[in-house]
Design a protein around this nucleic acid. Sequence first.
DNA 1: TATACGTGGAA
DNA 2: TTTCCACGTAT
Length: 305
Amino acid sequence: MAHRTEPTRAGLDPSVPVAELRRTLLEWWAATRRDLPWRRTRDGWAVLVSEVMLQQTQVARVIPRFEAFMARFGDPATCAAAPVAAVIDKWHGLGYNRRAVALHAAATACVDRHDGVVPAQLEALLALPGVGPYTARAVAAFAHECDVGVVDTNVGRILARLGGRSLRPAEAQTIADALVPPGEAWAWNQAMMDLGAGVCVRTQPRCDQCPVRACCAWQGQPADADPADGSAGVGRGQSRFAGSDRQGRGRLVDGLRRQPMVTAADLAEVAGWPDDPERARRVAATLVADGLARWDDDGGLRRAG
DNA sequence: TATACGTGGAA
DNA sequence: TTTCCACGTAT
């Protein structure tokens, strides 16, 4: 019963050789590493800001905005003291602007509840606005080297393929945590994410280059449906952007970056729907509800406080 | 559990 | 040119 002596394997298919998986993946990563420099800083705020930016936004687009953001809002207190409109302004080009509102609120919570620093405990991190399972564990692992498994879309895909089956969210998290080599959460999570981003990609995975192929139940065999489809943490298709409410929201937020107010008369034009003022007002109301703007007395839209 | 939420690069 | 693809959280 040799497998009983393997390291922690809670939730894992017994056929997955944990020790070999850990060793081969870490060796591969040591030879190919392309980590993000600020993840090494142990600065909880820097890691939080970058991970919030990395929600739904790819690394290449985050890097320049992250540098600019940190130059302006170097710690939670600076961010919390600024008007939320200033944070929204610095979010330009990243999309999903309500993340900026949530980040400002998270900075405020750090000042109010955690002596101005980003907490290290998972529970406290999860309580911050805009911080979910991914971001909380990314901060815990990368800033504080806690032994937690970070499950993003890449890791979710890898875990499903390794086990050869679709996973529920709690299952994926349990397995991700169990795989972390004790004391090496930083490198391990970085390695998993890099593997998913560069090798175990969604379509046409490069299984011939995969360092952990020998441990994988799926191995990209075309005859077998991809176990990652519909599995926990793996993103799904989305509706079209062109012509969507999201596009109009983006235009309105951009309009408020250029000028402090969009008048009621200009609202439809700025939203990109000159012939549908009713739609523009309805969508503007969603911005107000999200804290991205506020109504002017005359029915115009103003920057958030 | 399904849906809303932005942008830009690649195909 | 258009379409596809990448990317977590809140509700």
